[in-house]
């Protein structure tokens, strides 16, 4: 193990026996402890892992058996909750969805995996960021059903074709992979970001919703869809495979032709 000044024991005591077929990989983590550090620093850990492990398993191994002070978010650990978004080898991914075998170097070369917090949001500690600016943009686009007039006595009926129009954007899990991969979001904090636009898209193109104009109006602002440079970072980052850039372009088209 690479010993550092503050290295403490893991939270679960002694390391378990190394399983057969394990390879030793170097996990390089960008860390920041607001109580001690003025600047973020890099910490490296050499740990045994199986090719079938996920990156999240490596982080667990470090936290449980090597350095219990390592801080990161995770909840379901199965790609559903969207808690463990991080920058893995320079791209935004969910740590629970990246397998080690896809990151291993060929031959006998030592594998180094670089893990950083997602960019563009304030870092609280290590890989833990303040998600509030992200959720603020999300709330700003009214991500809920807006209707006027009398409520129907029965359910609001929708055709299969109408449901299909916004099917892709219903998949969002609000992990912030897309928004924090966007170069415009990094440098200009007031851009709504891809995730907010995706969630606006989910209601703008819903035939049951009547708030399309309100949301389009919000996204027509200087911090809205026109800041998008179609770099496709968001589409590449999305762990749910949402065509994020396409959704943003559909919102632009709706604004341009005043037609949803």
């Amino acid at each position: 193990m690479t010993a550092t000044a503050e290295t403490t024991a893991g939270s679960r005591g002694a390391q378990p026996p190394v399983p057969d077929g394990a390879v030793t990989v170097t996990v390089k983590i960008r860390r920041f402890n607001p109580e001690f550090d003025d600047e973020p620093r890099w910490d490296s850990f050499d740990i045994p892992a199986l090719p079938s492990d996920r990156v999240l398993n490596l982080l667990h191994h470090i936290k449980w058996y090597v350095d219990g002070t390592l801080t990161f978010r995770r909840s379901c650990a199965h790609g559903i909750c969207g808690s463990d978004a991080m920058r893995i080898n320079g791209v935004n991914r969910l740590a629970c969805k990246v397998l080690l075998k896809d990151l291993l170097q060929k031959g006998d070369k030592q594998t180094t995996i670089t893990i950083e917090p997602i960019k563009g949001l304030p870092v609280h500690k290590d890989l833990l960021v303040d998600m509030e600016p992200f959720f603020e943009a999300f709330r700003a686009v009214k991500p809920y059903l807006v209707t006027y007039g009398n409520e129907p006595t029965r359910e609001r009926i929708q055709s299969v074709a109408d449901r299909e129009r916004f099917d892709d954007t219903t998949k969002c899990i609000l992990c912030a992979c897309c928004t924090t991969s966007c170069p415009v979001y990094w440098t200009e904090g007031s851009y709504f970001g891809p995730a907010a636009i995706v969630n606006a898209h989910r209601f703008i193109f819903d035939s049951r919703d009547e708030g399309a104009e309100e949301r389009l109006d919000i996204l027509n602002d200087i911090d809205g869809v026109w800041r998008c440079r179609t770099t496709f970072n968001c589409t590449d980052a999305c762990p749910r495979g949402i065509q994020v850039t396409k959704a943003i372009q559909e919102v632009k088209r709706a604004l341009l032709f005043k037609r949803v």
């Binding site: 006027y148 007039g149 104009e213 027509n220 602002d221 200087i222 800041r227 604004l255």
Partner: peptide
Amino acid sequence: KPRSPKRPAARRGNGEL
């Protein structure tokens, strides 16, 4: 809002558009 138009006129400018 019984007769509110489904899509009220835009309040903000269209400058960026």
